[in-house]
Amino acid sequence: MLELRLVQGSLLKKLLEAIKDLVTDANFDCSATGFSLQAMDSSHVALVSLLLRSEAFEHYRCDRNISMGLNLSNMAKVLRCSGPDDIITLKADDGGDSLTFMFESPNQDKIADFEMKLMDIDSEHLGIPDTEYQAIVRMPSAEFARICKDLSGIGDTIAISVTKEGVKFSTRGDIGSANIVCRQNTSVDKPEDATIIEMEEPVTLTFALRYINSFTKATPLSNQVTLSLSSDLPVVVEYKIAEMGYIRFYLAPKIDE
């Protein structure tokens, strides 16, 4: 038996909006740790890993580990039927072939339930080693989204370069080129407005901009985004969900032939 009650139901809605265009079908795994997903995009260039810890739920019952295959675009459609302040409860029976979503309005005057059929999905689970990154940049997530959107009007790739001067985002296209430099800035009124750069060594990596742009759909989940970079390794773009979990996107870099 699975029964998960999420008072801040909008979190689940935002998570689905963040991944539905990147991944078509995926398995949601439920264990004592929490509700999680790991999936690759269809080109196997990007990987998304998300976790909502069991503590994020007001009620968390998961009698045994369960993997539920779902079409994410359909799941997003179901979640869009919930109100912005609704409490969402997920329910599934052991060995069942469906997942039930229950939406309760905050004052309990409206209760809706939607049942979705589960799918069998063959998915490869990748082991992601713990790595010390050469550079870690924390910055306002809205600022990062704005930069990615602006650069995508100019070129198809984004070079992210971290030096002691700051972090530079660059692109180049038919109409010309663009560089945006963000310097470390900790003298802000609110901590979420800070830009913090931790650098062991300078690093520059180039990525397909359309993927990075797609990751920024997670912006409503967190005021800050963290970029972790090392030479010849996928970048990690992480949005922390308060104390409750995270969504991490990994993207393989482009390599000069």
Binding site: S43, G127, L233, P234, K254
Partner: peptide
């Protein structure tokens, strides 16, 4: 020319 690496080139299947 730039070569797009795949994510499996970095992370192994468990």
């Amino acid at each position: 020319a730039c070569l797009q690496k795949k994510i499996m080139d970095y992370f192994n299947s468990e």
